[in-house]
């Protein structure tokens, strides 16, 4: 469903991604791990064009996505994204956050959107918070609203950019739980995370990124228990 060939990205002189190749199939859950600064987040952000690739090929559903800025927002409608810092809209209630894009981007009927939004909030366990403003929520609740907001667009793939890194440790679990359920439902997911046990549990495949290239990939079993590359072994020794 997503295919990336020889992707390069520069920030001025800094060569962040140095030829990344990967292919992600429908319904697959893929986890990107690696040391900080390895380009995981940048790779993820290239997939929905929050960063523009400098070189390489990006195919979504076998369609070549070029950098035609006028079409990018159409592409993004099908790609949900969850951010490290939630980025909820503070001037809107939880419900308004969730219905904002379906109503104003997809031009769906407001009543229908509200119905869907209530179902989604139920799903992430926040049915009672619909009319609350985001500043009254805990970090874990905010992130679950952000997931509901992304799901409201009925995306075909969800990108998670370190969704639990900004959370207090005791709030990590509730967010991971929602993500697990989503994975079980067959959502295609690409996740950048430092939660190794979570990665091991939900991932179909794990990619290890180091200095802008994928140096090892495999099932969680292969990568966590029998890492081949020395850098991966070293990294896992530190985090596990």
């Amino acid at each position: 469903m997503i295919k990336i060939e020889n992707l390069h990205k520069y920030f001025h002189d800094f060569h962040v991604l140095k030829g990344v190749n990967l292919e992600i199939k429908r319904n697959e859950v893929v986890v990107l791990i690696g040391p900080s600064g390895s380009g995981k987040s940048t790779l993820l952000r290239c997939m929905n064009f929050l960063e523009m690739k400098d070189k390489g090929v990006l195919l979504i559903d076998d369609q070549l996505i070029d950098s035609d800025k006028k079409k990018l927002h159409k592409v993004r409608e099908n790609i949900g994204m969850v951010f490290q810092h939630f980025n909820l809209f503070p001037h809107k209630t939880v419900l308004e956050n969730v219905i904002e894009a379906p109503v104003h981007v997809k031009k769906m009927k407001k009543e229908d959107c509200i119905k869907i939004a209530h179902q989604l909030l139920e799903k992430v366990g926040l049915a009672d918070k619909a009319d609350v403003y985001p500043d009254k929520l805990s970090g874990g609740q905010k992130q679950r609203v952000a997931i509901a907001r992304a799901l409201a667009m009925k995306p075909e793939v969800m990108l998670f950019d370190e969704p639990t890194s900004a959370l207090d440790p005791e709030l990590v679990g509730e967010v991971l739980q929602v993500m697990k359920e989503l994975a079980n439902e067959g959502m295609t997911m690409i996740i950048v995370t430092h939660e190794m046990s979570f990665a091991r549990e939900v991932a179909d495949r794990v990619f290890f990124l180091d200095q802008g290239v994928i140096i090892e990939q495999g099932t969680p079993n292969e990568l966590f228990d029998h890492p081949k590359h020395e850098k991966v072994q070293q990294f896992l020794r530190h985090v596990l």
């Binding site: 159409k74 993004r76 409608e77 790609i79 980025n87 904002e100 894009a101 981007v105 997809k106 992304a150």
Partner: peptide
């Protein structure tokens, strides 16, 4: 992050 979130939901710049 507000603009990024809006864009990630499929909004155009002006919207």
């Amino acid at each position: 992050g507000q603009m990024e979130a809006a864009k990630s939901l499929g909004m155009t710049n002006s919207l």
